[in-house]
Design a protein around this nucleic acid. Structure first.
Lengths: 243, 243
DNA sequence: TAAATAGTGTCTTTCAGACAATATCTC
DNA sequence: GAGATATTGTCTGAAAGACACTATTTA
């Protein structure tokens, strides 16, 4: 604001590249999984052939807001329109994209597992290849851009919110049982939880509504559904206060 | 990613305007205060004469990263280089700026009170007018752009983190006393806290180190300093679990 | 020495962890 | 009916709230 501005309105500033990336999580195979998309293997691309978080340029013709842009990318990659979607943060700088100063608006999404091959079939021809990878595996890859850092931040955010919110419920198809929900919590947290304390906590929080019973394992169990999908429930304490 | 791209690398997309805005908070006069900057009163400006959060365009020549850009704006407006600075989120869309599709990266900062007139004197001639306003007053103003929404989000974030972190300590000049710290907590939360529980909590959290005594009110009290300014301490529970 | 504020002690309440006990379903 | 898993009950412990109490400093 303190420099000479052409036309006096700031429009003379060179504009950075602007993208949206989405870390899409699900739970499968006793692991937290994240969706990866492969960069096109052409020399013009900054990271040809590398795996990356799904995302891309904001389309100012098509996207009314950042959130719309994120929903569009989620839909294009998974075919899923409704899922938990939260803004994670933004990463921007001169060095993160060889094509120039760029800033990305990062989101994360939580959804029940769907086969991603099937979703890709729904997409238009020429859709980029996508696959689920366990978070540990994904973090070991040399992801494109600074996507490793973004993925790490997304995982940190999810793990930390799992300690005191009902977020993992969004990873399950409905209706689900309390043992199934506990299992997802344990998968994300990487440690076992006490059954009794877990059930008390979930039921006291009041974010579940009873649904039809589910025949999950050796016997049927009470099914539940998320009462309000607009936001996760917040518990009064974290799972493990003491260390 | 599914459209025809000039040169095949996405650089053909029209680029949105890119800005950084900072909600800078302090505590003064028993109120949480936020710094406002006045938009230039010229017809080319989208909101001439209106109050706004300090901020402006990213300068790709000058700013290495988004964080650097935020620090620069903080420094320009307050003269303060060191303070707590955290990313809040980003707001972007077709309608938020009449000049075109724009996205802003919003940060919030916490700092001890300084007179802003003095800081403005340090700034170059032509610096825009700035002033502190209580958060309630600021939210009643017709701020420029969507800054009311961003300010509300910043206030919500600060209020919520105050329930379980040591954030308010960053609003005080050091050394400060525990009664002073409690007072700031009460100002931000808008409700009184129990003295005994408060002191236990702060001291048990271990984020304070003893400093010289301070003659604050009717008698001197033990002074304290933040042991680690890089991040706030997190308490095992919120202040008020029950409702 | 009185007023005011700094600082402490202790009882109660809330809710998570541990773990045992009981109920229900499938085979 | 046996085995497995779902569901409940009870005891303990950590930390917050309530509130009374003591200590220190200034005027």
């Amino acid at each position: 604001m303190t420099q000479a501005l052409p036309a006096g309105n700031g429009l003379g500033f060179e504009r950075p590249l602007a993208t949206v990336d989405v870390a899409i999580f699900t739970a499968a195979g006793d692991r937290l999984q994240v969706l990866l998309a492969q960069r096109p293997d052409v020399p013009e691309d900054p990271f040809p052939g590398r795996w990356a978080l799904p995302g891309g340029f904001i389309d100012v013709q098509q996207d009314r807001t950042l959130l719309h842009c994120a929903r569009r990318k989620l839909k294009e990659k998974t075919g899923v329109a409704t899922s938990y979607l939260e803004q994670l943060g933004s990463w921007g700088g001169a060095d993160r994209d060889p094509r120039g100063w760029s800033a990305t608006h990062a989101y994360f999404a939580l959804m029940p597992f769907v086969s991603v091959r099937g979703a890709a079939a729904d997409a238009e021809a020429g859709a980029v290849p996508t696959r689920w990878a366990s978070v540990e595996d994904a973090l070991k890859l040399r992801l494109a851009f600074d996507h490793r850092e973004i993925l790490q931040a997304a995982v940190d955010r999810v793990r930390s919110k799992v300690e005191y919110t009902s977020l993992p419920a969004f990873l399950l198809p409905e209706p689900f049982t309390l043992p199934q929900l506990q299992h997802v919590y344990e998968v994300v947290l990487g440690r076992p939880l006490d059954k009794s304390a877990f059930r008390r906590r979930m039921l006291d929080a009041g974010f579940l509504e009873e649904a039809e019973s589910v025949a999950a394992g050796a016997r049927v169990a009470q099914g539940y559904r998320i009462a309000d999908r607009s936001a996760p429930a917040v518990f009064p304490r974290t799972f493990k206060s003491a260390e």
